[in-house]
Simulated assay, not measured.
Amino acid sequence: MNWDDIKVFLEIARSERLNIAAKRLAMDASTLSRRLHKLEEQLATKLFSRTTEGHVLTLDGEKLLQFARRMELNANQAFTHIKEHNPLDSGRVRIGVTEAFGSFFIAPHLGDFQEKYPNIEIELLHFARNIKISRNEADIAVAVDKPKNTSTIISKLCDYQLQLYAHPSYLTKVMGKIDLAQLASYRWISYVDNLLYTEQLAYLKDLNPNIKPHFQSTSITSQYSAIKSGLGIGILPCFLAEQDASLIKVCAEEVKLTRSLYLVTHPESKRLSHVNSVWQYLRALTEKHQRLLIPE
């Protein structure tokens, strides 16, 4: 069996689409398809079901994925340790994370990490869905929902708070204050309801089911920008909004939402020194900046 064919299989399993896998491998899609068919012929089984949604692993495909991923991780670990003059804490670590936590909490604090671990390369991957650690989409995931996959290592990272924020220009339009009894009457900024990948982001349902947003976006950065422009009011993570002095926290005592984040990785990834160093750094980072996550 050709290792290159296994790499083709792994990439299709991760991306679930032939054209995306081809792009990542810098190969022609027709060539990729031929390689996959050749592998299936060698194994005398179908590894994927071809659907309108893409390539979905069959039961045999799921079995092969477990062994193929282990082969890949073992090979990567071997290369890391065998390289001459290569320090123990060295290599690339991909962190799959939400846009807000990645952009406004992790990224601003990576300078200290790079000073301590100059040979570790960080890649922040923003996902608007649950990250598939089992398919090697990332080395470490920071998840909003606690995964149910028992084959991964899962550890609670932290709690964080969300509150209601507005810009002074909008508050001027509503006579300088927000009336809790009239929440549905204000201009709201929020997520696109039918595109939410988790109910953890359905903040407005916790406040008032009658609220109908005037502006919606799948991007928290776009929501933040809209609130900052004075377009309306919205719920933002405190670790994001508290760093912007132009935003005003409204109904501070009455509106407080708490969510949790979880660290997730594969046991074989956790054994790699550079992955474990990033894991421990993320834990230390949240402990150090507790007041930013949950303001007093």
Rank of each mutant, 00 (worst) to 15 (best):
L18M: 08
I131H: 01
A75H: 03
F105Y: 05
L180D: 11
S33R: 14
F79L: 12
Y170K: 00
L247A: 03
I233D: 01
Y186R: 10
S217A: 12
S134D: 07
R69V: 02
E199I: 13
H167R: 07
I235L: 12
G54H: 03
N210L: 13
F67D: 11
L236H: 03
N194M: 13
A26G: 10
P87S: 03
I82S: 07
V264M: 08
T198F: 04
E40W: 00
R291M: 14
D193P: 12
D89A: 14
A141M: 14
A107M: 15
F104R: 14
I120V: 03
L263M: 11
Q243F: 02
E41W: 07
N136Q: 09
S190G: 09
S134R: 09
S15D: 15
S277E: 15
Q216Y: 01
F67L: 13
L247H: 01
P209G: 00
K212G: 00
Q66S: 04
D5M: 12
S217I: 15
S225F: 11
M71K: 06
N149V: 03
K116L: 08
Q200E: 13
A100V: 03
D244Y: 04
V93M: 09
L240A: 04
S222N: 15
V93W: 02
S151I: 09
G54D: 05
A44T: 10
T152G: 04
A202T: 10
Y281V: 13
R94F: 02
I12T: 01
E296H: 07
A181F: 09
I178Q: 06
I227M: 03
A184D: 14
A128H: 13
N119G: 03
L157C: 14
Q243E: 11
V275W: 05
L39Q: 06
S169R: 05
A181E: 12
T218V: 11
F79V: 15
A100N: 06
D89Q: 13
V142E: 10
T198S: 15
M27R: 06
G234V: 00
L285I: 14
T265C: 07
G61I: 15
R14T: 08
V255S: 03
R94L: 09
L10R: 04
I122K: 05
T51A: 09
F9Q: 03
N208G: 04
I189M: 10
S155N: 12
K249L: 11
M175P: 00
A143H: 11
L180N: 08
K249D: 06
A107Q: 12
S246F: 12
K228H: 05
K205R: 09
V93R: 11
L201G: 00
A78T: 15
F9P: 08
D28N: 13
D206S: 12
V278P: 01
K205S: 02
L43S: 01
I294M: 12
E62G: 01
Y262M: 14
R283D: 07
K228W: 09
E268W: 00
E123V: 09
L263V: 10
I82A: 08
K156E: 12
I154D: 13
K173A: 01
Q77C: 08
V255M: 08
K249A: 08
A29M: 14
F48Q: 09
L171C: 01
A181Q: 13
M1Q: 04
I178C: 06
V144D: 10
F79C: 07
K173C: 00
I12R: 11
L263C: 10
K46C: 10
S225D: 15
S225N: 13
F239M: 05
T58P: 06
